[in-house]
């Protein structure tokens, strides 16, 4: 979810879910999207951090519709997350939820989003004067891990709906802690399933990949050519992945060129 900078000038304060209004460990606002707020809080114990996703009610919607939508979206996201987790797809676990109140508590994922790490890496390489195209094992490795993780998710019948490098995290792996894990090291964890759906349609999967491809193009243009590594690893990740890649070619050509009829 993007951090929405336009809201910093907003006149209305950040709405808090009721549970965060009871004074305990103060929650920290992490991100504010169009749909939901993300806080860092704790679950059950002060030592157990969690991410709290809160969908405040929207004043423009009819209250009945608003509640219906909020409940549906919280449950839908929780369902997708638990399904993924059960099937071994690396996502945060669901701790607790209250769909009527519009919140969900999920496992806190340590680490950083791929978007930031990747840009740090690319700028460091540029500073070191390493020309593009020179073999970069770490970068290739990262791309492959991304492809595998996305493939794994598609393989269990889930489509993310908003695949960008801000929704992929690199979680430090304990065993590598001694070496001070490298910038691009870590386990890929997929986050923010607010727009996800359960689908096995190749079209939906291809669109998922297309969104990620475009995200690479616009945010990390220097790494754009390496997207083929993502797709390469994706192809090997589940049966039928190659058909998705063929669909991707179609989706690319279409892009936003849906015809209009006046």
């Amino acid at each position: 979810m993007e951090v929405d900078t336009s809201l910093s000038q907003s006149s209305s304060p950040v709405p808090l879910p009721l549970i965060l209004q009871r004074p305990s460990v103060p929650a920290i606002l992490i991100a504010q999207g169009a749909e939901a707020l993300l806080f860092r809080s704790t679950y059950l114990l002060p030592s157990l951090p969690c991410a709290l996703k809160y969908r405040p009610s929207k004043p423009y919607r009819h209250p009945t519709l608003d509640l219906r939508l909020t409940k549906h979206r919280i449950l839908s996201e929780a369902r997708v997350l638990t399904k993924c987790r059960r099937e071994g797809v690396p996502v945060p676990g669901v701790y607790a939820l209250d769909e009527g109140a519009g919140w969900m508590m999920i496992e806190w994922v340590d680490g950083e989003v791929v978007r930031i790490r990747l840009n740090e890496w690319l700028s460091r390489r540029a500073q070191e004067g390493v020309p593009q195209g020179v073999e970069d094992g770490k970068l290739v490795g990262l791309m492959r891990r991304i492809g595998s993780a996305v493939g794994r998710m598609h393989g269990v019948g889930v489509v993310h709906g908003d695949l960008t490098t801000s929704n992929l995290m690199l979680r430090p792996v304990p065993a590598e802690g001694v070496n001070g894990g490298g910038m691009l090291d870590g386990e890929i964890v997929l986050i923010d399933f607010g727009l996800a759906s359960q689908s096995t349609q190749d079209e939906d999967r291809a669109v998922d990949l297309y969104v990620l491809e475009r995200a690479f193009g616009s945010t990390h243009s220097k790494a754009e050519s390496l997207f083929t590594e993502v797709l390469g690893a994706y192809e090997k990740s589940f049966k039928g992945a190659n058909i998705v890649l063929k669909k991707l070619e179609e989706v690319r050509m279409r892009g936003r060129k849906r015809s209009m009829l006046g």
Partner: peptide, 22 residues
Amino acid sequence: QETVYAMLVEITERAMAHVGSS
């Protein structure tokens, strides 16, 4: 009306968040 307009407002809000406009 309530439903289709809510849909329109939602996609508009998403675009606004994306481009940073109010």
